[in-house]
């Protein structure tokens, strides 16, 4: 584009950052109360609340585990990724 303008907004979502992950957050759907606190704090914009339950998009999750640390009901655990 002329002058390096980028018109395809949001196009960086083609960059799948899930490969960065060393630890994977795992959501216990039984315990999850769908409060959305994990979504609010997720730096990678990769948690959605669907049917009142949190869901992680592992294509993008970098495994920071902020979600685990802010969960008020300890519904999120972590597992080491197999490399």
């Amino acid at each position: 584009m002329v002058g390096g303008v980028v018109t395809k907004v949001g196009s960086l979502d083609s960059n799948k950052t899930g490969s960065w992950r060393s630890f994977r957050p795992v959501i216990d759907r039984e315990k999850c109360i769908g409060c959305g606190l994990c979504k609010k704090f997720c730096p990678d914009v990769c948690i959605e609340i669907k049917d009142k339950k949190a869901e992680v998009d592992y294509d993008y999750c970098k495994g920071c585990l902020i979600c685990k640390s802010v969960c008020p009901v300890q519904a999120i655990s972590s597992e080491e990724e197999e490399k």
């Binding site: 960086l12 799948k16 704090f41 730096p43 990678d44």
Partner: peptide
């Protein structure tokens, strides 16, 4: 996946607080 203002796929470090602030604003 993304919000209305910013998409996933950015390369901020895992656990970056600044991008949380940027998105909240």
């Amino acid at each position: 996946m993304s919000s209305e203002v910013i998409s996933s796929g950015h390369s901020a470090c895992a656990g970056c607080g600044e991008i949380i602030g940027e998105r909240m604003v």
